[in-house]
Simulated scan of single mutants.
Amino acid sequence: MKITVFCSANEHIDSDYFRMTEELGKWMAENHHDLIFGGTNQGLMNCIAKAVHDGGGRVIGVVPSLVEKGGRMSDYLDVHIPTDNLSDRKNLLIDQCDVVVALPGGVGSLDEIFCVAASKCIGYHSKKVILYNM
């Protein structure tokens, strides 16, 4: 299964979030699920990428050019999908997965959650959206 994870790129959040994100990443790798995420090397994004990668799982990063040019792309990508902007990234994150899991995040994560939920309500897809209450 391909699991898109929406989450924070912030380093300054509760350490419990990092621990639980790492556990999720290990579980994904152990169960042979691919990670699809925003591709940055910061916060929970990099934490889950490292956990999946270190566990032998496949990590797919959908990375906007601005993130890549800024040197903020994760080192744990097995597949790198470049995009021109955040809208393209969000569309690919939703289109390429079987299920979406949302972890703690900021404004970008909220935007992604509402977009996937709204598009499901309208009938564009029937994917599950899981809000992981850490």
Rank of each mutant, 00 (worst) to 15 (best):
L24P: 04
L24K: 08
G25Y: 04
K26W: 05
W27V: 02
W27P: 00
M28F: 09
D34Y: 14
L35H: 02
G38P: 04
G39R: 03
G39L: 06
G39W: 01
G39H: 05
T40I: 03
Q42L: 15
G43R: 06
L44A: 05
L44V: 07
M45V: 05
N46W: 07
K50P: 12
K50S: 14
A51K: 01
R58A: 09
R58Y: 10
R58I: 15
V59Y: 00
V59P: 00
I60A: 07
G61H: 03
G61S: 01
V63D: 07
V63S: 02
P64T: 02
P64C: 01
P64S: 02
V67H: 04
E68T: 12
G70N: 14
G71C: 00
M73Q: 13
S74P: 02
S74I: 00
D75T: 04
D75G: 00
H80R: 12
I81Y: 10
T83L: 05
T83P: 08
K90S: 07
L92P: 09
L93Y: 08
L93I: 08
L93P: 11
I94S: 11
I94F: 06
D95T: 03
D95E: 13
Q96E: 12
Q96L: 13
V100I: 15
V100K: 06
A102S: 15
G105K: 03
V107E: 08
V107T: 09
V107D: 03
G108M: 04
S109T: 15
S109C: 14
L110S: 14
L110P: 12
D111A: 09
D111I: 01
F114T: 14
F114I: 13
C115R: 12
V116I: 15
V116R: 06
